[in-house]
Design a protein around this nucleic acid. Structure first.
Lengths: 195, 195
DNA sequence: GTCTATATCAAGATAGAC
DNA sequence: GTCTATCTTGATATAGAC
């Protein structure tokens, strides 16, 4: 038989579902506790404080996103499609279980003035992961321009996420972003082969 | 002699400087009052509540941004430069008096779950302004592809703003965004003249 | 319109039993 | 580890005088 998830996991699920859709500050601990059906003291025993819970939920979320992205890369057939896989990965990830309002990491960054150490680390890991993998996947496509292409893709992907805040659908934003990226790749390939 | 700004303007200045850098929720009314050197009752007499103050400060900010953008457009020499003027406008606007952490409008959108009517209206006006002007400026550059180019530029500009949250400097983000936009314009021009 | 003082409320976190 | 009950703080907003 399938047992009930542990109090710890119920807390993480509730935190993800509430704080990353309603905003961290706008989500009282009380509501997380209520949804998780857990007593206050249990939260503080496991995570120390609210920020600890949010940091752990964010870390878990980034892991899940990374896994979804890697799956989409593995399923792509060409170097170019592997580079562009981040866009279908976004829509498939977002159609999954827990949909945040836009990007959980950027959302936390936006409302956290001076993030604690755990939180700051997780936040910069997100940008680092994107940058590193974009660079790596760019090499077979544009060679020496990989660094530049990675910067463009990070900006475009960030733009896709931002468009969700402007009320655009994930599908539409991802489609536009994919097309934007295509123009940049074409342009950089031309400059590489032409130079 | 130069008189002291009115209590109303001191409140708006303080709200802009604090709430748009530290975050709205993270900025207590007390701190705004303290900085503005104004009594609580005065705030509520002028703006009704905290949200009213924030909404008015945001509206004023968008007006200033619009003016800065229009100045930069007027100073540009070619159709293409007018279209790209949004990037230098961003850096010049941000080097001005009151620098928010990234974009005040997106920041408010990010932390406001269910914005009140005034706030929601101002927020959508921001996206509308960008979209309309991008489309208008795109026509002489890419003709029938103006709608598409406007969508790309909105995404890229949103990406530039989002990069500020990732810790990138306004100058670097705007420079990358300008280059990204250049590739898209080139690509669309080719497709227009080639079709 | 503006001030001083304060009411009211909700939030994060803890005490102590089991 | 988990619960019930509660402490403490800090926030928004208002009352009433000038």
């Amino acid at each position: 038989m399938v047992g009930q998830p542990s109090a710890r996991n119920r807390l993480l699920d509730a935190a993800e579902e509430l704080a990353f859709t309603q905003g961290v500050a706008a989500t009282p601990v009380d509501r997380i506790l209520q949804r998780a059906n857990v007593a206050p003291a249990t939260l503080y025993a496991h995570f120390g404080n609210k920020e600890g819970l949010i940091a752990e939920a964010l870390r878990r979320r980034l892991e899940n996103w990374d896994a979804a992205w890697q799956r989409e890369i593995a399923a792509a057939a060409t170097d170019r499609d592997r580079l562009l896989a981040v866009f279908p990965a976004l829509t498939s990830y977002r159609s999954g279980a827990s949909a945040a309002r836009w990007c959980a990491a950027l959302g936390v960054a936006a409302e956290t003035v001076d993030p604690g150490q755990q939180l700051a680390e997780t936040l910069s890991q997100d940008t680092q992961l994107l940058t590193d993998r974009f660079r790596e996947l760019s090499v077979p496509v544009v060679g020496d321009e990989a660094e530049a292409l990675a910067a463009h893709l990070l900006l475009i992907f960030t733009g896709v996420l931002g468009m969700l805040l402007r009320g655009e659908s994930p599908e539409a934003a991802a489609a536009t972003g994919r097309a934007t990226a295509g123009f940049v790749i074409d342009g950089l390939q031309a400059s590489v082969s032409g130079g």
